[in-house]
Structure formats: C-alpha cells, structure tokens
Nucleic acid binder design. Sequence first.
DNA 1: GCGGGGTTGCGAACAGTGTACGCACATCGT
DNA 2: ACGATGTGCGTACACTGTTCGCAACCCCGC
Lengths: 249, 249
Amino acid sequence: MPENPVSQSVNPVIQSVWTRPRRPKREQPTLSRDVIVAEAVKLLDEEGAAALSMRRLGTRLNAGATSMYSHVASKDELIELVVDHIYGEMEVPGPDAARDWRTAAARCANGIRSTILRHPWIAPMLGEVGVSLGPNSMRLTEGMLAMLEEAGFDLEQADHVVRILFAYVMGMTTSEAAWLTMLARSGQSQEDWTRKVWPAVEQATRDYPHLRRRYTAQEGGRSNEVLVDNFGYGLDWVLDGLQARLDRG
Amino acid sequence: MPENPVSQSVNPVIQSVWTRPRRPKREQPTLSRDVIVAEAVKLLDEEGAAALSMRRLGTRLNAGATSMYSHVASKDELIELVVDHIYGEMEVPGPDAARDWRTAAARCANGIRSTILRHPWIAPMLGEVGVSLGPNSMRLTEGMLAMLEEAGFDLEQADHVVRILFAYVMGMTTSEAAWLTMLARSGQSQEDWTRKVWPAVEQATRDYPHLRRRYTAQEGGRSNEVLVDNFGYGLDWVLDGLQARLDRG
DNA sequence: GCGGGGTTGCGAACAGTGTACGCACATCGT
DNA sequence: ACGATGTGCGTACACTGTTCGCAACCCCGC
C-alpha cells in the first residue's frame, strides 16, 4: 500500500486525512506573556543564562518553537520583561519609611542584593538592558525617590543618591553573582574549587605579594558573613556621605 | 582568462591537480594570540558586542573561520583575554602614590571609568567574567592594594576598600555604558532619542510623580559634566568613609 | 444560523553561530 | 632525510533567533 506522497512532514507515511490525529483542542489560550516570562525565569533559575533559548522555552511550555512570538516581539524583549519581573521581587520602601530613611535605604539595598543573588544570571542582563521603563523598575525608583524627598533631600540630590546607591549595590552584587554562577557552572563546592585552582593562583601571584597574601589569608573562599559584612561596610560609607550632605542642607 | 576557481569546495569542477593554485606561501606565522585579541578589540570598538563572531573575526584577519582555535581555546577564553587586554589600558597607581592616597584612588577610579566608557561593550563582559587571574587585572589590584597598605590600611581593610571602590566604579560606569551603547545602536543623538521616546516616558510616568519630575528636570539627557559630577559625588562619599576608617585606626 | 476578521499556535526554512575533526603543509630537531 | 609538531582551513554538525504561511480557533455582526 500506501506510499502516499502526501507526506507533510516528519513521517512520510501518513495514513489518511481521517485517521490523522486532529490537533488537540484548544481549551483556552494556554500561552500568555505572564506564563512565558514566569517559565523563562524558572528555566533561568534552574539552568542559567546560557540555557535560555526560544526552543527550549517552547518545549517546556508544551508549545512549538515559535509560538511565543505572538506574545513577545523578540528574545531581547522577553529578556526585558524577565528583568522587570525580577525587579518586581524587590521590596519597595513604603511611604512611612522616611521617618528613618537610613535604615530604610539600607533595607532596600540589602533586599536588592539578596534578590539578585537569588537569580545570579540577572547581573549581566542588568548591564545590557540599562535603564528601563518597566513598571516594576519604575515602582522601585519612584519609591526610593519619594522616600528621600520626604526625608528632606531636594529633587536633584535624591536623584544623585538613588543613582549612587544603586550603582554601589549593582557593582558589589554583580561580582558576587559572577562568583556564584561560575561555581554553579563548575558544579563544585567552594572548597573543592579553590583547592583545585590553588596551584594556578600560587603561580599567577608569583610577582604580586599583596595579592598573594590576600588570597592566602582568605583561603577557601569568602564565607557568607564576610560578604555581608563587606557589603555593609561600603553601604555605610555611602550612607554616611549621604547623611553629611543632608545635614549640610 | 582568469576564471580561476580558486576554491575547490564551492565549485565542483576542478581542472587538475596541476593547475590548482597552491596555497599561498606562509611567510611567517601571521596569527598569534596578540593579533587576534587586538583585532577582536578593534572589531568590538567599531561594531559592538553583538558583531563579534569567530567567522567575522577570522575574515578580518584574512584567516579562515576556525584558524583562531590553535591560539585560543574557545570564544569564552578569547573574551577573557579581551577583558584582560582592556584592564591593561587602565592606569595603575604608582608606588609613590601612597603619599596622597586619596587623590591617587580618585585618579585610579576616574581612569577605570574613562577606560570603560571608551569601550562600553566591556561592561556586560565584566559582569560575566567576574574575578580573573589575568595579568593586567592582577597588576591593577596589586597596585591598589600596595598603595593602600602603604597608606596605613592593614591587609583586610585594604581588601575591603578595593572591593568597595571597584564595585562603585563598575556599577556607576555600567549604567553609563549601557546608555552609551543603546544610543550607539539606535544611531541617533541624545536629543533625537529623548525627543522620540518622550511621549512614551510621559505615559509611563503617569502614576509616578517623582520620576516624572526627575525626567522633566533633566530633559534632553544628562550632559557629560553632570555625569562626571555625579560620579565624583559618590566617589567622594566612599572615600570619606574610607578616610574615617583610616583615622579611626 | 453563518460567515468573516483577528488572534493564536506551529512546522518549515533561512541565515548565522560555536566548534570538533581531519587533511595539507611548513618548520624544526635529529 | 625523516618523523614530530604545530598552524591554517574546509567541512560538517548541532543549535540559535526569527520570518513566513497555513491551520485552527475565537468572537462579532449579520
């Protein structure tokens, strides 16, 4: 029988138009921006930035490779949405936080830091996306600006402060996130990894005594508390400067 | 005459073994790590990060697509080399800078900033590469550490300071670089671009009065001086905190 | 009822990617 | 003179993002 040349795709032997399984009924639009973005975040959390491809995302959603393009214009746009989704996880300073703006700012900074460390793949994306008009990112800066103005800064000062604060947090957290992702990619523990590259470090620091002393001092990698302390120090310095500026008028 | 089909792959008709042009004589090894990295930097400067592909790089070097793999293990490794090459453009504080560590640190920070802004594509790469053992990156941190210890900080403090300072500089400069690259990609001037997206901004800031006031206040984008001032403020704050810590012991 | 827009899903196809493999050749140490 | 070594490169493979056109479904006006 049937060399039926109707073959319309993978399997050249097609039984008949009548026996061919109909496409599964569409109960309701299964795809939407929200579920796409949510699944992308899940994929990124589980497998990292390199694993995000439209095809993989599609199969995870039981969808075809190109089915997302009705809801999202391009992969870059998807990434912008993902970034704003993560902004949405960050805590916004409430309106009454101006009473103690200093702890409110520190709290917000720490919140941003831990959000990024929960999704370390976001750090390079933040560098590529830059300033965005996403609603969540705007909510965050709006909250910050409002709090600072309430606390006595004028518009320009508050603008500077927000920029400086965010820059510090992003810079500090980006390097922590890079360390985390490299560790995750190697699949080893901190101790294993440092033990493994130790000879290379020793050889590379041959001509750099201070660096060598630094590495030997903190052998086995920085512990989490050390990192938090380090983050807190710099944050305090920035907030000190901020306070001085506020007192000065 | 000279339809000399130099290629034997594209054109299946091969005249003869004898008439086939011999491969051009190799005068001397034309490829090396250095020329590859240098050309990669040039390509990145001219066309941005998205344009860097092994094939394009190869053709720019009059080489085949895969000829670089004798000198460079992978594209990721090439990027690490490129990053360290850029580190090499940054000014390292000299040994006598400890006399006035504050201006030395500020000078170094400004140097890092302007180097990054000269190569804005590097910002996301710094986020992906993280800490590296490249010689130039080590020279820089070694110089910083040495200067700070000379100035009176102990090892641990100097470590903190370097990390905090770099974090601030990277964070601040990354957002500036992102703005620059987006501008370059759109091919428009600051004014054109802001004018063009203004309605979108106006609509997006409907519910965010502080943000809207901020945008309207600095309409037409931040000028260069404003950016430098902004960078300098935060830097001063960080250095103030640093100074206080030094005075306290 | 019953068309017909408009939207959503998707298979195929296209141009372009990083890179593994193996062959041709040049160079060099013996 | 001859193998060992290392460099250049054509080919090939598995993927990538994205376009296009077609099929199926929804809803809305008749």
